[in-house]
Design a binder for these strands. Structure first.
Lengths: 232, 232
DNA sequence: CGCTCGGTTGATGCACATCAAAGGCTGTGG
DNA sequence: CCACAGCCTTTGATGTGCATCAACCGAGCG
């Protein structure tokens, strides 16, 4: 936890979230907020914690997870730079509201933590920010719905759709390397299936040269093949 | 399509959505809007239509559906009185934005259709309305996530959770009769499973006296049993 | 009075879960 | 610096929950 440096603020100002905002807009929007660096697998907040702040992802990636009755988790969303996490719960007027889900870092990440009071003072009344937030929500909602549509489809199709959806937004350049260090376990948790099933599909793709995975990266070599799989 | 009568407006003012709003708030929020009565299975708007208006459900119920690659639909949400449909897409600045999903009436319904221009004039700047909208969104999001959590659970558990979730909000009085005329097909579409599977589960419940269904209603007789099923 | 819609039942098969066992890699602490 | 633990991946054997297909019935409706 540290006070944002000028360099931090520069980086923050470049996020989509704040495009078109003036300097003073930004400084009031992030009033009282702190920069937090997270290690791999570190938890930002847990389901059930008091929701006293919300966060903007600056670097890296987080997964929003929800524990199931049985031990395994379900991944509800992958948050990448510019995403807001814990923002919806700020709208509940109740200051004792609890986070409904857990946010966990995937690889090293940096987030900006903004106190709830700043939310009600600056965000709730700034219609431009509200608009951006809703736009993020819209995307998130669309993706979940999209995923629900594929529920009955064969697993290959669902994995293909997930990878394509992520590569649309989350590739660094145009090389189709996912900027998220995505494990097969995480794909499984995101789709709600068993790890082994995911592995069986992806190993095949790996051998066929459709994707390429090492410890850190997941590269989509032949995206046409996945696209064909996706909509058939 | 007709201009709202005083009686309509009274009914509208009583929806949760407008609680705490003054009369003038309401009249500017529904400026230029029209009342539309829908018959059973009538479509309010289809995915791909130009989103020129959004709607508030006044009476009855709608299902928001998304067609899948194969013929069958997926139900994304059940909208009941007070719910806003087509609202998220209003935030996209693009006036040519298209509805991403289809809204279809379940039984006879009444909705209030509000033009997009009124949205940008009154809703986007009224933080109280924004708050209510976000609260609706929050609920919708929570439910979808909740459902995703149960993905790997046995079908009985998932149906139980769905019925309980609906009965929480949508029962007329405390008699646990769902106010939505819910068919087994719709339950199946909502959970993304086959009709026959739903029927096999519910027929059993019917015979065991846990639920009671006739053509129009679905009554939960023994809710404890469903609750027990849900969280085991 | 045929037609569509909702519900039901049974037979069969498959896609995926589950269980088990093992190897590589990373970080950590003695 | 080595040992150990935890995480990620892999592969195979076995089982099962649910999909699929097919056929049928009753009720409402134009």
């Amino acid at each position: 936890m540290s006070i944002p440096t000028n360099k931090d603020i520069q980086k923050i100002a470049q996020l989509d979230l704040f495009q078109g905002a003036t300097e003073s807009d930004i400084s009031s929007a992030i009033k009282g907020s702190l920069i937090k660096s997270l290690k791999h697998r570190q938890i930002l907040y847990s389901a059930g914690d008091r929701a006293e702040r919300f966060c903007v992802v600056v670097e890296g990636a987080l997964k929003l997870i929800k524990p199931t009755p049985r031990g395994d988790d379900v991944i509800v969303h992958f948050a990448t730079p510019g995403d807001v996490v814990g923002g919806l719960v700020m709208n509940q007027n109740n200051p004792n509201a609890l986070y409904p889900i857990t946010a966990k870092s995937m690889g090293p990440s940096v987030v900006l933590c903004i106190p709830r009071t700043t939310y009600s003072e600056s965000w709730a009344t700034n219609s431009k920010l509200q608009l951006r937030m809703q736009s993020l929500l819209y995307q998130r909602m669309s993706r979940i719905q999209e995923e629900k549509t594929l529920y009955r489809s064969p697993l290959q199709q669902r994995i293909a759709a997930l990878l394509i959806g992520l590569s649309d937004k989350e590739t660094d350049n145009d090389s189709n390397i996912l900027s998220i260090p995505l494990t097969r376990q995480e794909i499984a948790d995101s789709l709600g299936v068993a790890v082994e099933s995911v592995i069986r599909v992806m190993s095949e793709w790996n051998q066929a040269g459709i994707i390429r995975t090492n410890e850190k990266y997941l590269e989509i070599v032949n995206i046409e093949h996945l696209l064909r799989l996706q909509d058939e």
